[in-house]
Design a protein around this nucleic acid. Structure first.
Lengths: 230, 230
DNA sequence: ACAATGCTTCGATGGAGATCGAATTATGGA
DNA sequence: TCCATAATTCGATCTCCATCGAAGCATTGT
């Protein structure tokens, strides 16, 4: 009755899962290796929570994701290295076909410099910032985790950020987040969010409407560098 | 205005191309490495010619295929090894998730034995047949091509198949076709088509309706073996 | 020149699924 | 116990696109 029977594994099924922009964004975000909650993935993908939940269910059903329930959070992660490898392969093809970007817009450049990644800052500025934090031992790497270094508490207190405000939440205080453009980590987690809050509150920069782009004012950029990079 | 901007290569675009069943079947068929015509791919995918043409245009536009116009045929092939690698990666994931087959139906087994591949026979029987032809020098391999061996003309004439009917057409007389299940070649091309015609005309086997499955009758199977394998 | 074959384009149709708001369930904290 | 937050389920809408028939173009062969 049903004609479309093919030999070979059901490649269309899995490719179709990756083929939706929202799901692709989620998977890309998970390529960092760390698991994310449904809310975070919804923000990453730029869709509402119900929509994200639906997509996550499909990805789970398709076997591309695993989930770990922890409290009232559900941490979704890639099902394994094989899945990650597949996504890298797809990325490779997409990149080599690459400059075929649909949006060659002005965003491309500005996004590289500074953009929002869920609730924290990403892009070149953010990468430099994290590098500086580690160089000055405000933060230290512990394997794939980040934690407060010996000079960290004093520093963050001095600039008005409570780095200890994090103990109760299950959300990690600091996470690193690898973005595709720079190939380097930047600071995520509660601390990263707090820093972005400060940047916006001080009006050193503003978010472009309906975009992830973060634009610094000339003066704001100086303040930012003085505060975080000097 | 448009919000869904993501960093990284446009993975969804290329995955979406592979995500359609018809296109996935085409790509799978092209994994043999040999280029196929639009008609052949339409048959492989189980769709009409216009539909196939539309898909091929999309795959071309997406950069996954190349095309070589040759006479009034257009031979479509994978754009390169990178694309093939990506498809293999997807196959790997799909297979490991594998026995999750949507159709666990009876087809699976019968398809392995004998099925139609465009216009010729595929499956275990077809593979054995080609093996026999080559062992008895009815056909010889020349690199990736097949051509008539020294005992071939007499043999095919004896069973009522004109193996020379092929000179004028540009379509290769014999091609080998690698199928996924058996991982071995079977006979395609004009000669392969003529043989399938004979099998059906003699009523040794019949095609299942709306399927690629070919079912041999008990007597027909004996005749088939006597004619082609003895 | 004319017919035949391979392929593409056009136009119309139908169905699948992505999306969101609202309601529901589950968990944690006061 | 009661509220707040995380996440899923439900229902409805709407857009996209796979599909095919018919017509159009291109190439080959007679």
């Amino acid at each position: 009755m049903d004609n479309t029977m093919k030999d070979g594994p059901d490649i269309a099924r899995v490719a179709n899962l990756v083929g939706d922009p929202a799901r692709a964004n989620m998977l890309t975000a998970l390529m960092t290796g760390s698991a994310l909650t449904a809310s975070e993935l919804a923000a990453e993908a730029g869709v509402s929570l119900p929509t994200a939940s639906s997509h996550l269910a499909k990805l789970m059903d398709g076997g591309l994701l695993t989930v770990a329930s922890e409290g009232r959070h559900r941490y979704y992660g890639l099902a394994g290295p094989q899945v990650a490898g597949m996504i890298e392969a797809i990325m490779g093809v997409a990149a080599s076909l690459g400059p075929r970007r649909v949006r060659p817009g002005p965003h491309e450049k500005t996004m590289r410099e500074a953009r929002v990644c869920y609730d924290h800052l990403a892009g070149e500025h953010a990468v430099k910032m994290l590098d500086g934090f580690i160089a000055r031992e405000f933060l230290v790497r512990e394997g794939k985790e980040l934690s407060l270094g010996k000079h960290g508490a004093a520093y963050f207190a001095a600039i008005g950020i409570d780095a200890h405000d994090t103990g109760k939440s299950r959300r990690p205080a600091c996470r690193d987040c690898l973005d595709w453009s720079v190939r380097r980590s930047h600071l995520a987690g509660r601390l990263g969010a707090a820093i972005l809050d400060k940047i916006l509150a001080e009006k050193w920069a503003r978010r472009e409407k309906n975009s992830r782009v973060v634009t610094f004012s000339p003066k704001g950029k100086m303040e930012f560098e003085k505060t975080f990079l000097s």
